[in-house]
């Protein structure tokens, strides 16, 4: 079992994606199927961008087991007021700055759901959000 941990700074679009990039390198070294790697890093990257876009700070933990990758993204931030709405394609509360970066189209969480075998989202408004995803292989 391998565990990777990363710190994400809210609002930092210069380094957003570093955790996903490092995870991708490790998964390739482990010779995990390329389709599984792509599903994992696309969903992880969407999560990283969400933390950079919405939260104050966050932690990402990736655990690679024998036949499963688990990603836990925990942030401190404004949280999600209505998770059902946030899961709808096209719903977004992203700022103009985030949209200028090419994101904020309301496709992040739906795309994470599409790529992960399991997606769980828990959020407390004013406190933060925890996202747990798993990818089977």
């Amino acid at each position: 079992m391998i565990e990777l941990k990363f710190h994400i700074s809210g609002g930092d679009f210069d380094t957003a994606g570093t955790a996903s990039s490092e995870t991708k390198k490790i998964l390739k070294q482990l010779n995990i199927d390329s389709k599984v790697i792509k599903r994992t890093v696309v969903a992880l990257y969407e999560g990283e961008v969400n933390i950079a876009a919405h939260a104050w700070k966050g932690e990402v933990a990736v655990t690679v087991k024998d036949h499963q990758i688990v990603a836990l993204l925990k942030d401190e931030g404004p949280g999600i007021a209505d998770i059902n709405m946030a899961m709808l394609e096209g719903f977004s509360t992203a700022s103009p700055k985030v949209r200028e970066m090419g994101f904020g189209a309301g496709m992040g969480l739906p795309n994470m759901k599409k790529n992960a075998d399991l997606l769980e989202v828990e959020s407390t408004p004013g406190v933060g959000t925890t996202v747990r995803m798993s990818f089977d292989f």
Binding site: F13, A16, G17, S20, S21, K24, K38, Y45, M101, G102
Partner: peptide, 15 residues
């Protein structure tokens, strides 16, 4: 038309 670091990160993840 979007030339920033996240364009490259996106491309990296999307192969």
């Amino acid at each position: 038309g979007l030339a920033n670091v996240q364009t490259i990160r996106t491309a990296e993840m999307a192969e």
